[in-house]
Write a protein that binds this DNA or RNA. Structure first.
Lengths: 249, 249
DNA sequence: ACGCAATCGAAACAAATGTTGGAGCAGCAC
DNA sequence: GTGCTGCTCCAACATTTGTTTCGATTGCGT
């Protein structure tokens, strides 16, 4: 992947958030940046870090955000796919309140906070697009609170699958058949939906027995969208996929 | 409360997020605004609303954000005190993904989205302060995911109390003794921490029996901060109270 | 191909939390 | 005051979810 289309991917993402001018795009393409890659379980940001360094944009691979409790339990609070900003959430904060970790192999573009902040000051529309992106992430956090707080195990897991599938589809990452696989261990799944891996295993086997999902090794997929999204109580509104049409504020 | 010190409260809040210039403050004071008040359970924003109208800043009273599931369960995803912006989260979004509701009697200043967006464009530092405020809210959402997903009933409720107490203290709303009361019904408490009101009741009685909290009618308070915050696994880092010292980005 | 480590599948049992239903009590409208 | 209405408190019981443990399987490095 060349330097140019690396930043083009970022422009595409931002244009999903609000309309940009030719000057905006030029300014983005002029950003100083470096490519980096992380191995499985590598940390991109670590809770407690003094932020203010680097903001990454994912090109390929998966990552998640997580928090730890004092007794060692982990809660995954967000998933990230290619095309997501990985720590816009810390852009203006002094110290990281959570960690960001690669799932498998992960490739990113790194941008310095300083450069990004300068861009935001000089190209307000780009700033707005970034702001909107962080607001959409916040909306997803709220849905996760609801998912973990008010749905049972079946619905929680189904909901996670639905969110993942929709986001993959929107990013053009599903296969020809429109299917996609979620390559997480059952323990990671549990940490994302507030369950133990044992109960995730039970629930997953149940869903498979009912013919609602298929599993192959560590990958989960499904093809009856209607059925699974109903079980999940899934309404994509919170993903704010309609932002494009808004144009600039 | 006069129009002037109404906006002064807003300036104070924003200066907790980043340093503002004299011009910034003047621009804020020049904002067109109206006062409004809501009765108990009145909606300030309703899920599904086309956003783009009004952004409120709370002057007195409590409010919370909530989402509903299809089968009617409610999840409260945030609490708001005097001095909080009530729907910065929707400032740039087309349709509201959740509701904001008054708890008791609530007084606010209303600002039009258009006016706010103009202010952001003309005074970038004010924009940054608002952005930071929304990032801090997002951080609180993440902590709530963790609270609901990975702590037991005792810890969850204690954590909510701790968060409330710290935020009240920071806003200068505690009484002389540094105590504060949380005037929510047990059902509302349950909806905030992902439990039923029955289990909230059990847990609350347990905490009181152990001498960790006191209750008077619908109000809960405590005075052994050490004890309660340990039970809650409470670490105030996620509230990002240290933003002030950062100055401008 | 071999062996180690991680993950999955599974069962028995334990604990936490939810459900239902109802009694008592406070606040509020009249 | 009287009668509602909503909240608190409580108990019995049901259900979901967690814990522990272990064998089977898979992935991976050599």
């Amino acid at each position: 992947m060349t330097a140019t289309n690396v930043l083009t991917a970022m422009i595409e993402k931002l244009e999903m958030r609000c309309a940009l001018s030719e000057d905006d795009r030029r300014a983005i393409l002029a950003l100083p940046h470096t490519l980096a890659s992380y191995g499985p379980k590598a940390y991109i940001v670590r809770e407690g870090d003094l932020a203010g360094g680097i903001c990454a944009f994912a090109l390929s691979g998966l990552a998640f955000r997580q928090k730890l409790t004092t007794d060692g339990a982990r809660q995954i609070v967000a998933l990230h796919l290619p095309g997501d900003f990985l720590d816009l959430q810390h852009l203006f904060l002094r110290v990281a309140d959570h960690s960001v970790q690669a799932v498998g192999h992960l490739e990113v573009v790194q941008l310095e906070h300083g450069a990004l902040q300068r861009l935001i000051r000089e190209r307000p529309m780009v700033g707005q697009a970034l702001w909107i992106d962080s607001l959409v992430e916040a909306s997803i956090f709220r849905e996760w609170v609801t998912n973990v707080g008010r749905r049972n195990a079946r619905a929680r897991i189904a909901h996670l699958l639905c969110e993942f599938a929709v986001r993959m589809r929107v990013s053009g990452l599903t296969d020809e058949a429109g299917r996609c696989d979620l390559p997480m261990t059952q323990e990671e799944l549990g940490d994302a939906v507030g369950l133990t891996s044992v109960h995730v295993n039970r629930t997953l086997r149940g869903l498979e027995a009912e013919g609602l999902i298929q599993r192959d090794k560590r990958r989960i997929s499904f093809d009856d969208w209607q059925a699974i999204s109903q079980i999940a109580d899934f309404n994509p509104r919170y993903l704010h996929l309609d932002q494009v049409s808004r144009g600039g504020g």
